[in-house]
């Protein structure tokens, strides 16, 4: 159901709207969309964690089956939760960018909205669930309703608490749960390779191999950790910037906002740099 736009929006004095400059929104949303692209380069998920874990269990047990046969269905569900939350945010920021762009490009919401329908799996608090719903409704309103450029600030204000909750939820899942699983995996490696290093039946060369293998695994996991933390940090940063902009839009001086966006750009460049370094 598409939420009705509050009547108050239509009653807002014209002089307020006349001062509205969309450039800050455009800059912020462009930066946001640039940053969110890094999410697609994470290269680590609940399901990939499950496969890694399953593979390592075979190594520990020293067993070879015809196929790997990992039971990862629940992990895939967790990925669906992550995907749904992410698409919702991406959808919103894309929409905002399109709305704020001078060309007012069209944007297609059909696929993210379809994705949302599978989000029933998520157990969210009431506030989180309502945030999720509201954000998608606002985005749909913005695209299908009778668009007026001036309304954007009000959309942002309406969306802000929901954007914050969803960003926070996604950052939490990535940082605490996905990274938490990686931490558990690290301890499994530690216990296994440390046991090997103490095994008197192994030759020094075999032990050396075990030590090397362990530190390589740690090195790889550190790269994953940096990526995930950067994305989680970015989500929070975007939410903060969105709040500031939507709360003080009328009062925001062009210069003040410019410096905020420049800070964001800088963060984005360092994120880009981090990902580039890790890909080398």
């Amino acid at each position: 159901m598409v939420r009705k736009i509050p009547t108050v929006i239509f009653l807002v004095p014209g002089f307020l709207l006349a001062c509205t400059n969309l450039k800050p929104v455009q800059q912020l949303s462009t930066e946001a969309n640039r940053g969110l692209q890094y999410f697609h380069e994470l290269d680590y998920s609940f399901a990939s964690h499950c496969r890694d874990h399953c593979y390592f269990q075979k190594i520990q047990a020293n067993t070879i089956d015809r196929d790997l046969e990992c039971k990862c269905a629940v992990y895939q569900e967790a990925d669906t939760v992550v995907k749904d939350l992410f698409l919702e945010l991406e959808n919103y920021w894309n929409g905002l960018e399109s709305l704020a762009s001078p060309e007012l490009a069209r944007y297609d919401l059909s696929s993210p909205v379809k994705g949302l329908q599978s989000s029933k799996l998520i157990d969210m608090s009431e506030a989180e669930a309502s945030a999720f719903q509201k954000l998608s409704e606002l985005a749909v309103n913005a695209s299908t309703g009778q668009y007026r450029k001036k309304r954007i600030v009000y959309y942002m204000k309406e969306a802000d608490p929901h954007l914050n909750l969803i960003s926070e939820k996604l950052a939490f899942i990535l940082k605490e749960n996905l990274l938490g699983l990686l931490e558990i995996q690290k301890e499994s490696w530690y216990a296994h390779y440390k046991t090997l290093s103490l095994n008197e039946n192994l030759s020094p060369v075999e032990k050396e191999f075990a030590v090397e293998k362990y530190y390589r695994l740690l090195e790889d996991s550190e790269k994953i950790r940096i990526r995930i933390q950067s994305i989680a940090g970015l989500l929070k940063l975007l939410a903060v910037n969105h709040s500031e902009l939507s709360a003080n839009y009328q009062n925001t001086s062009q210069d003040g906002f410019k410096s905020a966006v420049m800070r964001l750009s800088k963060e984005m460049r360092s994120l880009h740099y981090e990902f580039d370094q890790l890909n080398e």
């Binding site: 569900e77 967790a78 992550v82 998520i122 157990d123 605490e176 558990i184």
Partner: peptide, 23 residues
């Protein structure tokens, strides 16, 4: 003891998943 410690870690794993999905 190692088996027991692993069991604890397996549970921690399940809890992280539950935390993402449902409580």
């Amino acid at each position: 003891m190692g088996i027991k410690a692993n069991q604890l870690m397996e549970t921690a794993r399940e809890m992280k998943l539950l935390s993402t999905l449902i409580v």
